[in-house]
Write a protein that binds this DNA or RNA. Structure first.
Lengths: 207, 207
DNA sequence: GGGCACACTAAGCGCTCGCTCAGCTTCGGC
DNA sequence: GCCGAAGCTGAGCGAGCGCTTAGTGTGCCC
């Protein structure tokens, strides 16, 4: 485990794949601004200012303000999906894998709250094509969680009547963490992840 | 039960308290526009247009665009709080009252999804004073749910380690319905309400 | 050390935003 | 049948938006 991973609670520092450096600084500035004020209330002047550049510099690296949101949303969804896939495909019972999936998914939504907020709540600001691409990733996210729950039902570990509805509820519960989680609040991302994993196991009637 | 109540699944048709008629039409138009596009992406011309009026007419009835959001948010939060208070103060065990609270709260978030969306997700667009007023209502909402759960724990009906965290999760789960619920989807508000009441009873370890 | 590619800035264009205001219509009271 | 109040409209103001363009500074290759 690298130093960067340790300081973010086991998760890889994101945005390192974005190059050059100026493009990454702009993107990080955009994430912060979008998370604080929302996409439509954020100005390109604000983003450039946070990155220590002039408004025009943004357009060297990105065609439009919307492209910035698209890149953020794409990378964020890729990361969220990767987290769930890692948990779903490890060794272990459905109970263990569901607890792992929920706790790591929730930990990401709490620990990377600014990113998660943009990813989960600014989808409507994307154009039709980008929106469709992201919705496809969301279907994959849904399928990962549903898969674990179905396996738990099949193995007799879980007692669930409505698998689709329960999957929706589990994801919904986890995603909403990005709305209310407060970095200066009383709970750490790890604590919320552990609590939520327990609550979800209760929801699926795990033994 | 009146006809209006029957057509909205037991809930009173809102906005009837807003007068005169033109002010109500503008407010209903604003709810729809804010829910579809978000507060910042909605123009005063769009709101006035939906209400069949000129842009200037809006300012006869409301001082600013923000006042519209404030009125919507205030009325919506009052209604949400009223729903929970009704469930919390009825006769019955904590189990019955929690199931009632969650199912009716969720039913409102699904059935009145456009209003709920504005109420729950556009809080940040309010100025400091209005925001503080609404946050106080949210604390009352939280207290109602926490009260039922605490009583259930005290009576031995529930098995909950972290009452505050579980309260947060129950409310979070219910509120997020406004984000994903689709009127043309496979589930009715009543079905989601019933499913969620069951899931919440599992979360609190009800017998 | 001259030339050039490239990252960046200062200035500003065209547009739309929230909001204003002068004036028009309608209508109840007398 | 005239009057004032109230509800509303057409036109438009100042500001700030996303984005463009002409030009500047800097560093690398030969």
């Amino acid at each position: 485990m690298s130093t960067a991973e340790e300081t973010t609670g086991g998760e890889v520092e994101p945005w390192e794949e974005v190059t050059p450096d100026a493009a990454r600084r702009l993107l990080v500035a955009a994430v912060e601004a979008f998370a604080e004020r929302g996409y439509h209330a954020t100005t390109t002047r604000d983003i450039a200012g946070r990155a220590g550049m002039s408004p025009a510099a943004l357009y060297i690296h990105y065609k439009t303000k919307e492209e910035l949101l698209h890149r953020i949303s794409r990378i964020g969804h890729d990361r969220a999906l990767e987290i769930l896939q890692t948990a779903a495909r490890r060794e272990g019972t459905a109970t263990e894998r569901l607890a792992d999936a929920v706790s790591s998914f929730v930990r990401w939504h709490a620990g990377r709250r600014t990113t998660a907020r943009v990813v989960q709540y600014e989808l409507d600001a994307l154009g039709p094509d980008a929106r469709a691409e992201i919705l496809d990733l969301r279907r994959q996210v849904d399928a990962e969680v549903r898969g674990i729950i179905q396996e738990g039902v099949a193995s007799g570990e879980f007692d669930v009547i409505d698998v689709h509805g329960t999957t929706l509820a589990v994801l919904s519960l986890s995603i909403d963490v990005a709305r209310w989680f407060n970095v200066n609040g009383p709970r750490t991302p790890e604590e919320v992840g552990a609590l939520y994993a327990d609550l979800v196991l209760r929801m699926v009637g795990a033994k």
